[in-house]
Structure formats: structure tokens, C-alpha cells
Simulated assay, not measured.
Amino acid sequence: MTVRIDHLVTSGTFSLDGGTWDVDNNVWIVGDDTEAIVIDAAHDAAAIEAALAGRTLRAIVCTHAHNDHIDAAPALAAATGAPVLLHPDDLPLWKQTHPERLPDGELTDGGTLSVAGTTLTVLHTPGHAPGAVCLYAAQLGTVFTGDTLFQGGPGATGRSFSHFPTIIDSIRDRLLALPPETVVRTGHGDSTTVGAEAPQLAEWIQRGH
């Protein structure tokens, strides 16, 4: 069966450092008619489960552990039996939201996940959060960047656990190395391409060092 990417937008709040903001999150579902992987179980486990439409969920992958990207993960895991996967460097953030329930497995740089005959490679891209990762699907010509890279520039680094020079290094070394036609599917907002972001990122790289 043909692999496809389904897109769901869920709404909720993001909370960190004593502040709370309303946010809309992108939830990405990669799979075919029988199995899938969810990237970032945000806000609404029931809506995500409905979008799966009975498919076997192989994994719930967290690009990072800010609450708006993981708040629905335990409920979705309970409903589907799928494991929650997170890079271990983001465990301190995870525990702020889910102190009683740890992730089920670890994401490691260079590790791979397979679904519907497609391989997703884990790229550790710290900066927005210590354990932030992107998922590169070469066969699909796309990378799922969470909050590391958006249309228009890097993710925010003004709060706890974030670091601007680190996110610039991650984007330069890991994401700009991908083919320019690679579609960037982000954690919030519209998609873009590596080639579209590369020229303006030169300014961000200079500003970060």
C-alpha cells in the first residue's frame, strides 16, 4: 500500500516558566491503510485516534517534551497500546507535564523507525529543547522538524532549557545538509522547504556566533 502523510491541527495551551499561551499544533501521521506512526500527540487524543481510522499505531514519537507536544501522548498510548518515544535529554521537561508516567522508549541520533515500508531517521537537533529531534523521511522527501525550524526561521529559544547558538548549529549541521527540495513539516504553522529557508538562515547563523 502507498504510504501517505496525514495532517491534523489540534488546539490547546503551551505552558512554561510560569506563563501559558493558546497554541495550535500540527500532528503528523505517517503510514498506509493498515499502520501508522504519530509525530507529536498534541492536545486531543480522541481526535488523533479518530484520524488513525482503525490503523495499528506503531509508535507515538515526540519531537520534544514541551507540554503542547506531549500532553495527549499518555492517553493516546493507553487507547492504542503504542509506545511513547522521546529523546532522553528531554526527560526533565517531560516530567513537568507527566511526573507519574515515563516514556516507553528512547529516540537516539541516527536511529530509525519503520512504518509502511518507509524509514524515518532520527536527527538530534537540540536548541529549542535539549532532546529536540527531527525525523527525516528520505523516501518521502520530507523532514518533520517539530519546533526546531519553521517557515521563516528557528524555533524560539527564550525560555528554560533552550539555547540560541545550539539551535543554529543544529539547523546548519543537520537540516541545511538535507536536499534543498526537502519539505519541512513543522510543529506549528505552514510547511516550507530546506531550500526556501537556507538563504535567510545564513543571517541567523551569523547572529548566533
Rank of each mutant, 00 (worst) to 15 (best):
T112V: 14
L102K: 06
E106R: 15
P92F: 00
H66K: 11
E100V: 13
V115H: 01
L85P: 03
H64D: 15
G105F: 06
A73N: 00
P126G: 09
D104V: 01
A75G: 11
D89P: 10
D89F: 03
G105Y: 05
A82G: 05
T63P: 12
A79S: 15
G127V: 00
A137G: 10
H69Q: 10
A65W: 08
P99S: 00
N67Y: 10
L140C: 05
W94Y: 10
H64G: 14
P92S: 02
H64C: 12
H128D: 13
L113G: 15
T63I: 04
P83Q: 00
A77C: 02
N67G: 15
P126Q: 03
L86T: 03
A75C: 07
H98A: 12
L140H: 06
A138K: 10
G111W: 02
G111L: 07
V133K: 08
H64R: 10
G141Q: 08
T97W: 05
Q139R: 14
A116H: 13
A132L: 05
L113A: 11
A82E: 00
A77K: 04
A116E: 09
H98S: 04
T108I: 13
H128S: 13
A129Q: 11
T97A: 14
G117W: 11
V122W: 07
G141L: 01
E100G: 14
G110N: 03
L91D: 13
L86S: 04
L135W: 07
P92H: 02
T125K: 01
H124Q: 02
H87Q: 01
A78L: 11
D71P: 11
D90N: 08
A138W: 05
D90F: 03
P99D: 03
L140R: 07
D109V: 08
T119F: 06
A138H: 07
H66M: 12
T121Y: 09
G111V: 03
G105A: 09
I70N: 07
H64N: 15
N67I: 14
G141P: 03
Q96A: 14
V133T: 14
P103A: 01
Q96I: 13
H98V: 04
A75D: 15
L120Q: 02
A79L: 12
H69N: 12
T108C: 12
G141V: 07
A72D: 11
C134Q: 05
T125Q: 04
L86Y: 01
V61C: 09
H69D: 09
T119R: 10
T121I: 04
D89S: 14
A79I: 12
A75M: 12
P130H: 03
L113S: 11
L102Q: 14
A77S: 15
L107K: 08
L102C: 10
D89L: 12
A72R: 08
G105P: 07
L107D: 09
V84K: 01
P103M: 03
H98W: 13
L91K: 04
P88T: 10
A79W: 09
I70G: 02
H98G: 13
